[in-house]
Simulated scan of single mutants.
Amino acid sequence: MTKELEIAIKNLYETFSIYPFKSTMEGCACCVSDADKEKIHSKQLKDLNEGDLSRYAFKAMTTWGDTDDFKHYLPRIIELLATTDFIVDTFVVLGKLEYGKWQEWCDTEKIAVTNFLWAWWTDTTRNKPYFDKEAFTEIYKLTGEMEQLLNRWTISIEDNSFSNYVDLVYNYYNDLTGKRSEFREIDNSSVEKLIKWIKDNSKHLETGFFHFADKDSELAEKISTTQYIYEQT
């Protein structure tokens, strides 16, 4: 985890600590069982794990609790999303922000959420070995800032940012330059910015190939295929 992400998560806890724990929280009887309620009341907030919070993350605000309740649990849910293989999909968790009208929250809360999103994205590009399309798309939907997404993705052979780039081109470049069905939630002007960014960084493919040729034959082969895809599209 990057230091920036660590600080951003800490700030979320501090910012949303004004929303207290409720021993009772209204929920639809058909959707939320007593066992579900017991799980989120069983531990301190920072000790709740995926199993404790997964049901609530799905049901928050729609059939279980209100926006203030969601704000209480938000730091831990987001921390789990960023630091574990959280069983709740990214689009569900970040979609709850949109459902809760986070852009209408006070400035301090909006800034805390925004700082987390950017710190998490930077951490993702450096540490995940593949392009996280869901995180990329959902962060774009919440912020609308394609340039910031790309500016924070600094490609280096020394970390996974290069593997991320290779994976993006390998799996999605044809789609980006074609019907764009995989990126239909991103407007055309932003897609064009992404395509230009890919082209501007294509020089890394050749450099990366020679770097990994004797170190990781599987990755080198994928880089070679990726370069072919890029040049033929």
Rank of each mutant, 00 (worst) to 15 (best):
T2C: 08
L5H: 08
I9W: 01
K10H: 11
K10R: 14
N11K: 13
L12K: 00
Y13M: 03
F21A: 01
M25K: 07
M25Q: 11
C31H: 10
D34V: 02
A35K: 13
K37L: 14
H41A: 12
L45F: 04
D47A: 12
D47W: 00
L48S: 03
N49K: 12
G51Y: 12
L53Q: 05
R55H: 11
T62V: 15
T63S: 09
T67C: 08
F70E: 04
H72Q: 13
D85T: 15
V88P: 02
D89I: 02
T90G: 06
V93P: 06
L97G: 09
G100E: 13
W102Y: 15
W102D: 10
Q103F: 05
D107M: 11
D107N: 13
A112H: 06
F116N: 03
W118A: 02
T122M: 10
D123I: 10
T124K: 07
K128T: 10
F131Q: 11
A135K: 01
A135Q: 01
T137R: 07
G144T: 05
E145A: 07
L150N: 07
R152H: 15
I155H: 08
S156D: 07
I157Q: 02
I157N: 04
F162S: 03
S163C: 08
D167K: 02
Y172C: 03
E182G: 03
E185Q: 09
N188Q: 10
V191H: 04
L194Q: 02
K196D: 10
W197R: 06
D200F: 05
K203Q: 01
L205K: 02
F209S: 01
H211I: 09
D216N: 14
L219S: 04
A220I: 06
K222D: 12
I223D: 06
I223N: 05
S224P: 00
Y228M: 11
I229S: 11
Q232F: 14
